[in-house]
């Protein structure tokens, strides 16, 4: 079990309110991702759930029990830190077994659990090494192992992949998703990388300046961003967003169109522009178009390869049903 409810939770550091009161419910078994630009308060929120940071006001409930005043280790949560936070003076075996030892579990039971966790994480050959002798990916696994052995009601991940190189990151991403599928335990995952959010989450919580901008499934956020911020944050390459007369034509203050929802032609179309840089990925081509009179640059994404030259004249046509409209406050117009 692991249903986590935040009720009017807020945080001030001195006089600075980093998180104004907010409500949020994470259902049992959900994979929730907190995503947002750095400094948006997502890590603070996670640390408040963990009990590492006091609340300024509000309450946190885990499985209908108020845990606001409960110390971190008694909340039944396990956390994986960005820096892994392994104990450098202990072997892998000791590291993984440490929380169990603190619970005063019998040594042979600890051994059994540590072995089982190490087995599932492919760490069995490294049990007697110290963290300093492991690679980044292996350290990450040890940190996860230390969380798994406690059999927590929820896992908390604080940007766990940001210290890994790109290739490893993709692998670990899959492993964590796999782990969630297998265990069906609640997981809360903090990241600034929207790709991680989109690929792993059941529920994405987009934060900006301590405020929840939108909560929803990855595809909800992609198709129906509630406001300009979410629209710009989710999706890669970024959505093209601009205001002005073109937006007014659609009855909105601001409109947005994703690069992949714009058709391209060399002969005619709605908007006219000049090709800047074209990035050929093979499977896709990203074209950065200038001089459209709409905004500095519009990015379009075309499946497959297309041959354009820098400076070519180009025509763009947005797919009418894919235009996102926002009012003057940046909120979505239904």
């Amino acid at each position: 079990m692991g249903r986590i409810v935040l009720d009017q939770v807020s945080k001030k550091f001195g006089d600075v309110e980093v998180i104004p009161p907010l409500d949020l419910t994470i259902e049992d078994g959900e994979f929730a991702v907190f995503v947002g630009p750095s400094g948006c308060g997502k890590s603070t929120l996670l640390r408040m759930i963990a009990g590492l940071e006091d609340l300024t006001s509000g309450n946190i409930e885990i499985d209908s029990e108020v845990v606001t005043e409960v110390p971190p280790s008694k909340r039944g949560l396990a956390m994986v830190f960005q820096s892994y936070a392994l104990y450098p003076h202990m072997t892998v075996r000791k590291n993984i077994g440490f929380p169990l030892r603190m619970e005063k579990m019998a040594p042979d039971e600890i051994d059994k659990r540590v072995e089982a966790a190490a087995q599932s994480l492919n760490l069995i050959d490294y049990l007697d090494r110290k963290p300093g002798q492991l690679s980044g990916g292996q350290r990450q696994r040890v940190a996860i192992g230390r969380a798994i052995v406690r059999d927590p009601s929820a896992f908390l991940f604080d940007e766990p992949l940001s210290n890994l190189d790109a290739a490893l990151r993709v692998g670990m991403r899959l492993e964590i998703s796999e782990m969630h599928e297998r265990m069906q335990t609640t997981m809360i995952y903090v990241t600034h990388d929207q790709v991680e959010a989109m690929t792993m989450a059941n529920k994405i919580v987009v934060l900006q300046a301590g405020v929840i901008e939108q909560v929803g499934s990855p595809l909800d956020l992609y198709h129906k961003p509630q406001n300009v911020f979410v629209a710009g944050f989710i999706g890669s390459p970024k959505m093209n967003i601009f205001s002005g007369s073109e937006a007014e034509k659609h009855g909105a203050h601001t409109i947005g169109i994703r690069p992949e929802h714009t058709d391209v032609s060399m002969t005619d179309g709605t908007w006219e522009g000049r090709v800047g840089v074209a990035e050929h990925l093979g499977s896709d081509t990203f074209i950065h178009v200038h001089d459209t009179g709409l905004t500095d640059m519009i990015t379009v994404r075309i499946t497959g390869d297309i041959s354009v030259k820098h400076g070519d004249k180009i025509y763009l046509t947005p797919q009418a049903d894919q235009i996102h409209k926002f009012d003057a406050k940046g909120q979505r117009i239904a």
């Binding site: 009990g51 280790s73 830190f81 936070a85 929380p99 603190m102 230390r146």
Partner: peptide, 21 residues
Amino acid sequence: PKDIIEAGKMDGVNTWGEIKE
């Protein structure tokens, strides 16, 4: 690193344990 002390907190060490372990 503060993380290590916090990891200890999550793992259930008390103050004396933090100093000793």
